[in-house]
Simulated scan of single mutants.
Amino acid sequence: MLRFWIVLSLWGLASTGFAADYRELNWKNLLAPGEQAAVQATTSNQHNQVAPQVSAAVNPALDRHAVSLSGYAVPLEGDGQTVTAFLLVPFFGACIHVPPPPTNQVVFVQIPGGVPADALWDAIKVSGRLRVEDAHSDLANAGYRLEADAVIPYAGQ
Rank of each mutant, 00 (worst) to 15 (best):
A117W: 02
A19D: 11
A85N: 12
L130A: 08
V74W: 07
V109Q: 01
A119Y: 03
V89L: 01
A148R: 05
A140I: 05
P153G: 12
H136W: 10
L88S: 12
P60H: 05
M1P: 07
T43W: 11
P75E: 01
W11P: 00
I111C: 11
A41S: 03
D79S: 07
V39K: 00
A51K: 10
G93P: 08
G114R: 11
I96K: 08
G34Q: 04
F108C: 13
P153Y: 08
G156F: 12
P101C: 04
L10V: 10
Y72W: 15
T42K: 15
I6E: 15
A56Y: 01
L87M: 13
N29E: 10
Y144G: 06
A20D: 06
P60D: 08
A41E: 02
G12Y: 12
A148K: 03
V39R: 00
P60F: 03
G128N: 04
G78K: 02
E24A: 14
Y154R: 11
P99A: 05
G17I: 10
V89G: 03
S55D: 12
P90Y: 05
D134P: 00
A38K: 13
Q105V: 04
H136C: 04
N59E: 04
G113Y: 08
I111G: 04
V67Q: 02
P99W: 01
S15W: 12
V109F: 01
H97R: 15
D138R: 13
V115G: 02
N141E: 12
V7F: 00
Y22H: 09
Q110Y: 00
Q81D: 02
A150C: 11
P116W: 14
L146I: 07
V107F: 04
A38E: 09
G71T: 10
A94K: 13
V107G: 01
A56W: 02
H136A: 07
G113Q: 12
G128D: 05
G12E: 05
T16Y: 02
D122A: 12
K28D: 04
P116H: 15
P60E: 09
F108N: 14
N59F: 03
T82F: 00
A41Q: 04
E24D: 13
A51W: 07
G71D: 05
V58D: 03
G17S: 09
W27M: 14
A51C: 00
L146A: 11
L139H: 06
R131Q: 09
S44C: 06
N26Y: 02
A38D: 07
V151R: 09
M1H: 14
Q81A: 10
N26T: 09
A14T: 11
D122C: 00
A135D: 10
V106Q: 08
R129L: 13
A41L: 12
A119R: 09
S9M: 13
A61L: 13
L10M: 12
E133V: 04
F18M: 11
E35G: 02
G17D: 03
S15H: 15
S137K: 14
A38V: 10
D118Y: 13
R129M: 11
R3L: 11
H136T: 08
N26F: 04
L30E: 04
L69D: 01
G78E: 01
V98I: 09
G114K: 08
A73H: 13
F108R: 14
R23N: 06
E133H: 13
P90G: 00
D63M: 09
L130P: 01
I111Q: 15
G113T: 13
L31G: 00
A56K: 02
H136L: 07
L69A: 04
T84Q: 10
W121V: 01
